[in-house]
Structures are given as structure tokens and as C-alpha cells.
């Protein structure tokens, strides 16, 4: 378990390197989400996105990236919303240990 000072005031991890699957479980639990295979697939996809583009995605690019990497069935807002209710880009990035998406409106 990471202490409170590892997170910013909105609960985003301050340092990428502090992330681990256990930390993801911790953040998800705080958000009321039990992670299953489908969640993990998106979490690792988000981390790949960050490695490739040095930024966390907004919703639109996340949907397109999912479609390109995981196929059209998963490249849909509804699918992502079912896994990460409310704001999938924001919530997914948070659990994936990424900085808060800057253009997530």
C-alpha cells in the first residue's frame, strides 16, 4: 500500500515509477471498481499509450486507440464506460498510474 503522499489532491499517482498492479488495485478499490481481465486490458493499453505519446489520452483518442489495438468491438465509448463509469479516460488513467489527462473535459 502506498501512503497518501504518493498521490496528488485528486488521487492521481505523483510518480509513474510508483505504479504496480497492486497500486492499480488500491486505486480501483478506492474508486469502487473491482478489476477483471477486461479492465486490465485497458489499463495496459493506457500505459502503452503513455509510452508512445508521452501524454494521457482524452476520450476521443482513447476510443480510437482502443479500436486500432483491440478491434472495433472495444473501440467504443459504451464499452469503455461500462468498465470505467463516468469518465473512462480520466478514471482509467488514474488507475493506470498516469497523470491526469489535460484535455479531458
Amino acid at each position: 500500500m502506498l501512503g497518501a503522499d504518493a498521490f496528488d489532491t485528486e488521487g492521481f499517482l505523483r510518480h509513474l515509477k510508483d505504479w504496480s498492479p497492486a497500486v492499480a488495485e488500491q486505486i480501483a478499490s478506492d474508486e469502487g471498481i473491482a478489476l477483471d481481465e477486461a479492465h486490465w486490458e485497458i489499463i495496459y493499453l493506457l500505459r502503452d499509450y503513455y509510452t508512445e505519446f508521452d501524454s494521457s489520452p482524452a476520450m476521443r483518442p482513447l476510443v480510437k486507440y482502443c479500436a486500432a489495438k483491440l478491434g472495433a468491438d472495444k473501440g467504443k465509448s459504451m464499452y469503455l464506460l461500462s468498465l470505467f463509469p463516468g469518465s473512462p479516460a480520466r478514471l482509467g488513467s488514474k488507475i493506470a498510474g498516469l497523470p491526469k489527462p489535460e484535455n479531458c473535459l
Partner: peptide, 15 residues
């Protein structure tokens, strides 16, 4: 710092 070039690579995903 973050790579400006990498962020530019994401422009097509933002249409």
C-alpha cells in the same frame, strides 16, 4: 521533460 514530438504523434488520434 515530456517529448514534444511524441505528443505531436498523437494528433491523428485527436482528428
Amino acid at each position: 521533460t515530456r517529448s514534444h514530438g511524441k505528443v505531436l504523434d498523437s494528433l491523428p488520434l485527436y482528428d
